[in-house]
């Protein structure tokens, strides 16, 4: 079995130790780290995402795979010159102010990580200003806002309004999601993207990032 195949298997198994071991072997053998990410990690991540969509695996397994992915990346990324790092994008995510539900957001964060995004998860009950402050600090491409209650959806609009008021709306892609959130709501509040499920959200994030890079 090739080293890249071994790496993807470790991700699918959610085996952090194995992922680190194979990543180190790849480095020791002088194999291309970018290729390892694309042909090993990403292949594994894709399969994990598909298995989760079909509920053949569940959130704990998904998070273990995301952890394994991150651990392998920690070994591989230092081998790659800065400009060549195949990072999909930087995302700041969290559950909006007044809302303490986090399972959907955790799934989304795990799937983003497994798909090569750098994710800063701000947790739950996050005020509008905190999202923006953190997004600026880390140079985020996307601010992703989760809300699980009809009573907290308004906070998603508040973040967008806050960005507009600060003259920073165009700096970030804003995505929304969560149980009561609909496509219609996303359009109404001027969000750039919406995902009914976490995997749809990841696909939308990838598409939006690509579009943004093309425009730039």
């Amino acid at each position: 079995m090739s080293e890249f195949k071994k790496l993807s298997e470790a991700i699918i198994a959610g085996d952090r130790e194995a992922a680190i071991k194979v990543a180190n072997e790849i480095v020791d053998k002088g194999l291309d780290a970018v290729e390892a990410i694309e042909k090993g990690l990403m292949v594994g991540a894709k399969e994990v995402g598909e298995k989760f969509d079909r509920l053949e695996i569940f959130l704990p397994e998904l998070m273990m795979s995301a952890d394994a992915m991150q651990a392998a990346l920690n070994v591989l990324l230092p081998q790659i010159p800065k400009g060549k790092i195949p990072r999909k994008g930087i995302v700041v995510c969290g559950t909006v102010k007044g809302d303490i539900h986090d399972i959907g957001k955790n799934v989304f964060a795990a799937m983003l990580r497994a798909n090569g995004f750098e994710v800063y998860d701000l947790g739950i009950d996050v005020p509008a200003s905190k999202f923006i402050e953190e997004a600026e600090k880390v140079g985020a491409d996307i601010i992703a806002l989760s809300a699980l209650m009809t009573s907290t959806m308004g906070e998603q609009k508040d973040v967008i309004d806050y960005l507009k008021a600060m003259g920073k709306r165009d700096k970030f892609i804003v995505m929304v999601g969560g149980g009561p959130v609909t496509r219609q709501w996303a359009e109404e509040i001027g969000a750039d993207g919406y995902g009914e499920t976490a995997s749809e959200g990841v696909k939308v994030a990838l598409k939006l990032i690509e579009e943004r890079r093309r425009v730039k």
Partner: peptide, 18 residues
């Protein structure tokens, strides 16, 4: 059902609107 607004203002959790 859940009301979502008060006099046209969308309800915010923990606020006077709520």
């Amino acid at each position: 059902p859940a009301l979502t607004s008060v006099r046209g203002m969308r309800i915010r959790p923990g606020s006077p609107l709520e």
